[in-house]
Each structure stands twice: as C-alpha cells, then as structure tokens.
Design a protein around this nucleic acid. Structure first.
Lengths: 291, 291
DNA sequence: AGCTCTTATGAATCATTGA
DNA sequence: GTCAATGATTCATAAGAGC
C-alpha cells in the first residue's frame, strides 16, 4: 500500500476546493484559537470567530465521507476575567450548519502550563469536540482498548455468581459464548476523558498537539489506507502521525514558516523510513492531490 | 461559633424569597438534569430547561454576596445520538442574566457508569461551572493545596536535609527564613480538573455527589462561619459537609423523601457531634431562617 | 488487626418491543 | 409513523465477608 502525504500551503478555505466531495475519513485539527491580540498567529477576534469558522467548516462538511468524523480541539481563553463564549456559540452554529454534535471528549493535560493567578487555577484541560455527518459513522473501538486495572485480573480468575447469573438470564444458547468473551478480556474500553501530557518542544514554535492525540483518534476513526485531513496543520504533527500509521493525509498550513517545517518533517520521515528499509510504504509525498 | 443548618422543603423558587439579599457566600448545587422522560425526579424537558432555570438563578443572583461564587454541577445527556445543547444555552443565558462565567472545572469521575455502545465510550466527566457576580470574588487558594508528587517529595526532602545542616551553622544569618520558604512548598496548587470517584451508596436513593466535591469548593470559596446554599439539596450532602466544616448552610429540597432524608442526616450528625463533645458548635438546626 | 477475595451497584446508552 | 417502556451491556469502587 502506498501512503500519500500532501502538504499544501494556503488558507484551507481556498485549498480545500481542490479536494473531492466525501473523500476524507477523519478531520482532526487544532485551529487558531480566538485571541483579542490580532497580531499573533492567525489571531481571530472572539466576536468574529464563528463567522470566520463557518465557511471553512462548510468545506469540511463537503469533503468528509458520510461515515467520517470531525474532531475539533479547542479551548476558550480567559478574556477580561471571564471565559469567552465563542466555542459554545461555535458548537451551536455547527449544528445549524448540519453537523451532529456527537460527543465532547476531554483532553486532560497532565503537565499543564505552570503559573499562579489570584482568582483561578492552572487550566489543564481542552475540549475535543466530535462532530459527524451521520449517526452511522465508522468507529473501531477495539483499536484503542487499554489494559484493565488490577481489579479485573482477580475477577477474571473466578467469574462471580452475579455475572454467571446475569449470563444465565440471557438466551441460553449464547451462554458459553459469553463466558469465553469474559475470559478473553484483558483490556477494557476507554472513556471520553483522555490523559495525555503536552509535548514540551524546545524548538521555535509551540507544538501543543502531542502525537498521542491524533494517533488515538486516527486509530479510532480510520482504517489503514484511509484519509486524514488537518486543515490547520501547524508544523505537521497530524500528517507525520498519519503517515507513520499507514494513513494517507492532507495537511494545509497558511504560514510559510510552519508550512516549511511540515515539509521538512515529511522529508525527515522519508529518510528515516529509508533507513528502516520500509521505503516502499511511501511512494508519493507532497503536491499529490486527491483529485 | 454557632453553626446553623437550615433544611427547607419546597421549590427553591418559592423558599428563596425568604432569604436576604447578598447573604450567601457560596451556592453549590447539582440541579435535576434535563430528561426527555418527564416522570422521573424533577424531570425537565431539555427544550424548556433554560426557561425553567432562569427564574431560580435570578434568586441565586439576588441572595449571593458580591464576593460570592455559584458552582453549578451539570452534564448534558445524549438524546437521539447527539449531546443536548441545553447546557451551552444555559451558560449563554446566565451571562445575559448578569452572571460572569468565570471558569469551567472538570469533574473527572474515576468510576463512571459502565456500558458499551456501538458509537460512544463511557461518559466519565461532568461540568462544574463557576459563575460570579463580580470579578473580585473571594478565593482561598491555599486551602485546597494538594501534596506534591513523589518527585517533588524526594527533592524537597534532600533539599531540606542540606538546608537543615546549613541552618544550624548559620543560625543568626537569617538563612532559616529561606528554609521555611522551602518547607512551605510541600504542597502545590491544584488545577481546574478534579479527580473524584462517585460515591456508590448502598442506600435507597442515588447520592452521586461525593462529599469531596462540596468540601473542595467550600474550602476554596468560603471562610469558617460563612453561608453555603444548595437550592437542590437532594439527600443532604452539601449541608452535611458544610456543617462538618463549620459553615452555616441552607438546603432546599422539593421532594418529601429526600427532604426527610436530609433532616435525618442533620439529626444523625448532631448525635455524632454530641458523642464527640463538640456539641457547642451547633446550637440551631432546621427551620431557622436567615431573616 | 490486617490481609485477600466477593459482591453490589451507579445522573448511562442503545436496541428492541409494545402502545 | 412517533413515542414510551424494558432489557442488555459493562467497569471502578467500596463495603462486607472470609482467613
């Protein structure tokens, strides 16, 4: 299987017009957060954020497969002592645009930014909003199962009476099947709270998006050979992870500096893969469009 | 100091009219969540939730001191495969009512309800929304400091051993002050993510509110002798904790069964305090109004 | 007294069945 | 059709039992 990685430069509003309808399995992105300072990276005024976001999410809606998922990593900042409400308004607006607001995951940042303020504590969580086009989206829950706690080990040794009773209450033909199910379980399904540390990059830009984050959602919402899109790519975390996991990806970045970083990132990955003698997994990189 | 605990029966919309303006330091409550089934406990239709809530929060706004805080524990349910939006709409509506939306804490429920569904994981978090009347609210951050992790412990231990030696040799140099500084740093400030398990009560009703939750916010937002209000008291967790912590409290409960349970709860607490020979801390219980 | 092992159950959600 | 009730599924915690 060839893995394609496209790094595009520009505003996703423009570049996404080159991408086919219903062609992407997962959109995962951390857009520029609204900021009262207009000068910073992609700084959009909180009051105009929804207005700015909607035409872009319209494109997301178009390119996403009906079975696809859109994961939006976002967190409102404190403005004048209050949490901004533009994220809440964005959720409501996206629903009006046709998205289903399926779930809100919490990213618990175990090593949150230090600091002390007189009237608030450190902010150590962000929203991971899940939107879908349809209720029948693809989800590979088994791919993200986690090892069970100690408790389960002991319980698995002896099936408790209550569990046997519950099994007996079911259809009797499936009894053995259920027990086998229990015994095979060394892993449990996760919850909607993700505990991941931010990656403290000493490099020039802030890489707040840890690799584990896109990795988890790519495992959950795509198959090998599927297509991943990050319309606000930054320095290339999503495309790097997608490529490593055997998924095709499109990353769009408007700032020259980050765009170049993402390109370098892909090249570096290629070199590494060559060294590891799995170069055949990647036949095409850069500037290869979906259509 | 006498600690007063008032358990009132009825709808908080009515009973709060008996409470003075600007008299409460902390309102902390877990209101009935919106539910499509109308029959259940206090079940309010999601579409009418905001409309139902606002006149009550108007009373909360009136009785809260300018320096006070309102903590709202709530979580939207899944309806027809989507998260309901009534909580988002409630936040926006409360701001219009004059509240400041200061912060959103996350309650990570370590023992969330089990279950497996084809398109979602277990829901293991709830919102703890913080609202204030003014930006200059009271906050005692030191009261909720948590012990540092093992890494910090060992580091502190080593440092203090070294400093102790130095301190003995330089008693008069004023160096001891620095040591004291270090020693006071055995604790760290918490974040806005709270990890607490729900209490699995074997009793008749569901007491999902663990004692640790109101305890944490009472420590943070009130002083000894302050006033705590829970307008949707349930079986009396908030008043029990407040009383134990030397805070006066008002709890309002509409259902006869929970009201009686809360009353029994206060009585039981009295007995225990008598046994512990600190009865003088409580001189009045029940039916003693603020005005 | 201090272990280990057992058991009950909870602000859940979905599919199915019945009205 | 729509809507309401019922059953099945599932895991972390703590109380209780056993040793």
């Amino acid at each position: 299987m060839a893995v394609i990685t496209n790094i595009l430069k520009g505003d996703c509003l423009d570049r996404l017009t080159e991408v086919k309808d219903n062609s992407v399995d997962l959109i995962i992105t951390s857009p520029p957060y609204a900021d009262s300072r207009v000068k910073t990276y992609g700084g959009i005024n909180p009051e105009k954020y929804v207005e700015w976001f909607l035409p872009r999410s319209q494109q997301f809606l178009r390119v996403l497969k009906p079975s696809g998922t859109f994961i939006l990593n976002i967190k409102e900042k404190v403005v004048n002592g209050e949490r901004s409400t533009y994220v809440l308004e964005l959720i409501l607006a996206l629903r009006k645009q046709g998205w289903l607001w399926t779930e809100e995951f919490i990213w618990h940042k175990k090593n949150s930014y230090p600091g002390k303020w007189p009237n608030r504590f450190r902010d150590s969580w962000e929203r991971l909003l899940q939107f879908n086009k349809t209720k029948s989206f693809f989800m590979n829950q088994e791919a993200v199962m986690v090892p069970m706690g100690d408790w389960a080990q002991t319980r698995l040794k002896n099936l408790s009476l209550i569990d046997l009773g519950r099994d007996e209450s079911k259809v009797k033909s499936g009894f053995g099947k259920k027990v086998a199910n229990w015994l095979s379980r060394s892993k449990a399904y996760p919850t909607n709270v993700l505990h991941m540390a931010t990656e403290t990059n000493n490099k020039n830009h802030s890489a707040v998006f840890p690799e584990a984050l896109p990795e988890w959602f790519i495992k959950l919402f795509t198959k090998t050979g599927g297509w991943v899109l990050d319309p606000f790519l930054g320095s290339g975390t999503t495309t790097r992870v997608a490529s490593r996991m055997g998924r095709n990806s499109i990353g769009i970045e408007i700032l020259e500096e980050y765009y170049r970083a993402a390109l370098r990132d892909v090249n570096r990955l290629d070199d590494k893969l060559v060294d590891n003698q799995v170069y055949e997994q990647i036949t095409q990189v850069r500037h290869i469009y979906v259509r």
